[in-house]
Nucleic acid binder design. Sequence first.
DNA 1: TCAATTTACTGAACTGGCTTCACTATGTAG
DNA 2: CTACATAGTGAAGCCAGTTCAGTAAATTGA
Lengths: 141, 141
Amino acid sequence: MHGDPVEAFDKAFELAARLAEAMRQALAERGLTASRAEVIYVLAREGELVQRALAEALRCTPRHVTGLVDQLEEAGLVQRRPHPRDRRATSVALTAGGAATARWMAESRHTAARALLGDVPGDDLAAFVRVADVLLGGVTA
Amino acid sequence: MHGDPVEAFDKAFELAARLAEAMRQALAERGLTASRAEVIYVLAREGELVQRALAEALRCTPRHVTGLVDQLEEAGLVQRRPHPRDRRATSVALTAGGAATARWMAESRHTAARALLGDVPGDDLAAFVRVADVLLGGVTA
DNA sequence: TCAATTTACTGAACTGGCTTCACTATGTAG
DNA sequence: CTACATAGTGAAGCCAGTTCAGTAAATTGA
């Protein structure tokens, strides 16, 4: 039960790399990338959005959103519609397929979480979350 | 003390994204990228290596290693030398500057770990590591 | 009402990480 | 000596993402 800060810190980085890779693979099987998936995630959470708002939510350039929406529209997951009031703006919404993909993502998350962590004692999970929060708080600063 | 698997899982992903970004920034200040830093890390750990071995350690193509070593050599952090026995091979070693960079990386890791996690109870750290290990084990499969 | 300014999107061009493919030079086995 | 495998690299290209310039529409303000 030693609990060395450096060991925990290193473990967090190793975890980061592996989780990113695992997610990348899982998404790739559905033809998604992390960025494209994030667009779907945001649209599912926030509802229909104008591209500019999407750029802010994704913390990327408006130009890049154009490209992402191009790709997702091509894949039939989102749909561009003229904004009712502002004719400059383009509103982006999930299609039925996009909504289904969003549900798949949410479900995979739950399934994976239970499969991987279902047998872990609740106290350990709570401690994990506490430490993760400390790291998250410190890293932002 | 609830300890919800899904919450912990989500937290792990959030942590992954934030840690990657934080590391990217820290490395960028020294003109490094994650890949270039990994070359230095591997060379510091394993000692002088042939490019082919480097490619295996980094899990990337030999061609990419050529590029990475080009950049690091340009920056004066590593040095190419002909392999003593195999005239096809090129051996890569850290320069003094590269070794100093490796020490800086190790030290930063320790410093950050203690700054961020120094006040966290040892039991929580141990639990964190346990959960991280469960995730690492499950993700590989 | 009209000119000046701002805002939303997109084309063109570019950077950076990374890959594949083709090629050269060298080593190794029969 | 031939046949084959291996180490590195040039050329070309893919993908994520950016900047810059341009167009069209909205907003401001005299």
